[in-house]
Design a protein around this nucleic acid. Structure first.
Lengths: 66, 66
DNA sequence: TTTAATTATGCAATAAAATGCACATTTTAT
DNA sequence: ATAAAATGTGCATTTTATTGCATAATTAAA
């Protein structure tokens, strides 16, 4: 899963929960600018940023043997 | 999975493959300093850094519904 | 054991991510 | 069709991750 795919999953999940980028960015403590870029795969986010987002959306990051 | 757990998985997998931190850091293009911190959960790595490491170790990062 | 290799840490310098703002574009509601 | 809300982008600034080096501590080999 690359950063574009991860961004898509975040976006799909956020829309499913009917929440705006602005609101979610505020909830997780990221700037709207940065959040938009992460969803569109245009940022290289830190693990902390991803964790905050996924946790807020009820998603989980895992690393497993391929 | 938090950054400490992710670091542990990386370390266990690296040892399983019998490669040193120094060698793997060079392979993936990270400094030894940074790589050590990532394994020990003391860094806040970028997604790119994690992808390079997991790819080299035959691991996969996934984001899924919890 | 003692030596060599590997792993771990402090710190200053550098590179890169994140922010804030202004504004453009797209989508949704009226 | 129009207004309002939501989403997307350029750019300068700020914040933070990463690097490099020196050195300590731990682990493995002779």
């Amino acid at each position: 899963m690359n950063k574009i795919e991860i961004g898509k999953i975040i976006k799909v999940r956020r829309k499913f929960l009917k929440i705006t980028q602005k609101d979610l960015a505020e909830i997780v403590g990221l700037s709207l600018r940065n959040f938009v870029d992460i969803e569109n795969g245009k940022a290289n986010p830190t693990l902390d940023a991803l964790q905050k987002i996924t946790e807020a959306l009820g998603l989980e990051i895992t690393v497993k043997v391929d």
